[in-house]
Nucleic acid binder design. Structure first.
Lengths: 140, 140
DNA sequence: CTAGGAACTAGAGCGAGGTCTAGATCAAGT
DNA sequence: ACTTGATCTAGACCTCGCTCTAGTTCCTAG
């Protein structure tokens, strides 16, 4: 899962924001909340310097968040990774549980989609008929 | 989209909660917020009596909400319906826009799913190998 | 008649997930 | 040296979507 653009030099918070889609605020917020695996390096002047590994982790985070994983779970996952080898089973379990939630979510959404599509169809047909007769009022 | 169980008698708020999956709190909250099409009937004593039409509308609401439509949009839709015939084009537009968001959401989720599946695979394989060598530590 | 459960109202409270502010510092260009 | 813009911290604040509370009233069964 290496970033295609293999960067050796560390990035500033702004650059990371750009690459991950997270705001700089969110990046600091995540860090404060312990969602990062390691502490981010700093320059002499105190600015954050993100490595490629940091960015890869954040990209994973983004995907997990995007698919609805709560920050608390993300934090737990980060803790496990931070803690080092030996807890891979728990990490797997966490991911696996999430994966199932995502599957369920997709299913639910597909169901919604079909209900909505049906309704869109009802209106589209009504309008296509040119409202020839206002006799049928789709109240629902 | 008639409820399979065609009921003539109106239902109490508790019964509607059961049938829609919304809490009684949420039902009152939705009503206050103007998310219902018409005012709900009341008994002499002031209790709400929901008709089959009310319930059908709520079931649609549930699907729209479940798929991420904000309450504000739902409210707008209810207003249009309440306003009566003549604005079907706008209703269609609203639904159509939402439908597209749902499609996009499903796509995004599927992408997330594959990223997660990949990660699950990485851990599963690692564990299956029996951690024969701790040389490879999946830090990401 | 009485007890107990369901419903009523208005409004406060809550959890999640950030976002924004203030005031200060750092760093690069001219 | 000076200006400009990105970053820094800690903490206040915000939106969304309910949920819960308090105090009261309704209604049904015993």
């Amino acid at each position: 899962m290496a970033t295609t653009e293999t960067r050796a030099e560390p990035l500033s918070i702004g650059e990371v924001a750009e690459r991950t889609g997270l705001s700089v605020h969110a990046l600091r917020f995540y860090e404060r909340g312990g969602l990062l695996v390691g502490p981010v390096q700093r320059t002499a002047g105190g600015r954050r310097r993100y490595t490629a590994v940091d960015v890869d982790w954040l990209l994973i985070c983004v995907k997990l968040r995007e698919s609805g994983m709560p920050l608390a779970d993300l934090k737990r996952f980060a803790e496990l990774v931070r803690h080092g080898p030996g807890n891979e089973a728990e990490r797997l379990q966490l991911l696996d549980a999430h994966q199932q939630r995502v599957e369920a979510q997709i299913q639910a959404l597909e169901e919604c989609r079909s209900v909505i599509a049906w309704k869109v169809g009802v209106y589209a047909e009504y309008l296509a008929r040119g409202e020839a007769d206002g006799l049928w009022d789709p109240t629902v």
